[in-house]
Amino acid sequence: MELRDIEIFLTLADELHFGRTAERLHITPSRVSHVIKKQERRLGVQLFERTSRTVRLTPPGQRLRDELLPAHRRILQALDRTAAEGRTEAGELRVGYSGPWCAELLLRAAQELRGRHPGWSVRIQEIQFNDLYGPLHRGELQLQITEFPVFEPGLAAGPVLLQERRALMLPADHPMADADTVSLEDLAEVPLLRLQGDHPKPQMDFHFPPTTPMGRPIPRGPSYTSWYEIPVLVAAGFGASIVAARIADYHARPGVAFVPFRDGPTLDYGVLLPAAAPAPLVPAFVELLRSLAEGDGGR
Score class of each variant (00 low, 15 high):
A188H: 05
E189S: 14
E189Q: 14
E189D: 14
E189T: 14
V190W: 06
V190Q: 02
P191K: 11
P191L: 12
P191H: 12
L192C: 12
L193P: 06
R194P: 06
L195Y: 11
L195S: 10
Q196L: 14
G197Y: 07
D198W: 12
D198P: 03
H199F: 15
H199C: 07
K201H: 03
K201N: 00
K201S: 03
P202D: 13
Q203N: 00
Q203T: 03
Q203F: 02
Q203V: 02
M204H: 04
F206R: 09
F208M: 01
F208C: 01
T211L: 00
T211F: 05
T212D: 01
P213G: 07
P213M: 05
P213F: 09
M214L: 12
G215Y: 00
G215E: 01
I218A: 07
P219F: 10
P219R: 10
R220K: 11
G221N: 10
G221K: 06
G221W: 03
P222A: 10
S223R: 13
S223L: 04
S223Y: 08
Y224P: 03
Y224L: 01
T225R: 15
T225G: 14
S226Y: 00
S226F: 00
S226R: 14
W227E: 12
Y228L: 05
E229R: 13
I230T: 09
I230Y: 09
P231D: 08
P231V: 01
V232Y: 12
V232G: 07
L233R: 08
V234K: 05
A236P: 01
G237T: 07
G237D: 11
F238T: 00
F238H: 14
F238G: 00
G239M: 02
A240S: 11
A240Q: 05
A240G: 06
S241N: 13
S241Y: 13
S241Q: 14
S241K: 13
S241P: 00
I242N: 03
V243K: 04
V243H: 02
A244H: 02
A244S: 14
A245I: 03
A245T: 06
R246Q: 13
R246D: 13
R246L: 11
I247S: 05
D249Q: 05
Y250R: 09
Y250W: 14
H251K: 15
H251Q: 15
R253S: 14
P254N: 06
P254F: 02
P254R: 01
G255A: 12
V256L: 03
V256G: 03
V256A: 06
A257L: 07
A257I: 06
F258P: 05
P260M: 07
D263K: 06
P265E: 10
T266M: 13
L267C: 09
D268L: 08
D268M: 04
G270V: 01
V271Y: 11
V271W: 10
L272M: 13
L273A: 09
L273Q: 03
L273D: 01
P274E: 15
P274D: 15
P274R: 15
A275E: 14
A276R: 15
P278T: 11
P278D: 11
P278S: 13
A279M: 06
A279W: 04
A279N: 04
P280F: 10
P280L: 10
L281P: 04
L281N: 08
V282W: 07
A284Y: 13
A284Q: 14
